[in-house]
Amino acid sequence: MNRRVGRLLDGFAAFRRTRPFWGALLLVAAGADVIYFAGYPIFFAVSGGWNSSAAYILGGGLILFGLVAAMAPIHSPLLGVLGVLVALAAFVAANLGGMLLGTLLGIVGGSMVFAWGEKKPGKRQSTPDASTPAPAAEVVGR
């Protein structure tokens, strides 16, 4: 039983380390916040034009980009930028971006997604062997 739980936790850790998990989670939370604070029922929002549907579009966009960032991590820089832009648009169009909280979560989450770099899927990152000689020089930057 314990081994099973441990395997699940290891699997989740590997899942989390191979994608921008926390940034994506923040983007999803930002989208949910923007939709929640819009206060419109969805049927009214769909029939009421842009003013009433903006929160669903922008909040839905944040959730979408968050989920896609988790599914397609190699495109996380693009998705992070889109998340930040949508979060900023939500501030203008959707009830101050869900009372500001949604916009803040979106900016932070989008930035985290943008800046994400893949880690190794193992439980711990392997420490460099002391016996292995350090490289004489490293290329910094791209």
Partner: peptide, 22 residues
């Protein structure tokens, strides 16, 4: 890239579909 992710092509397709949907 680890085994926990879809193929590169599938990821690109997912992103394109998502952006288009939005």
């Amino acid at each position: 890239m680890s085994t926990y992710q879809p193929s590169r092509r599938m990821q690109s397709l997912t992103v394109i579909v998502a952006v288009l949907l939005f």
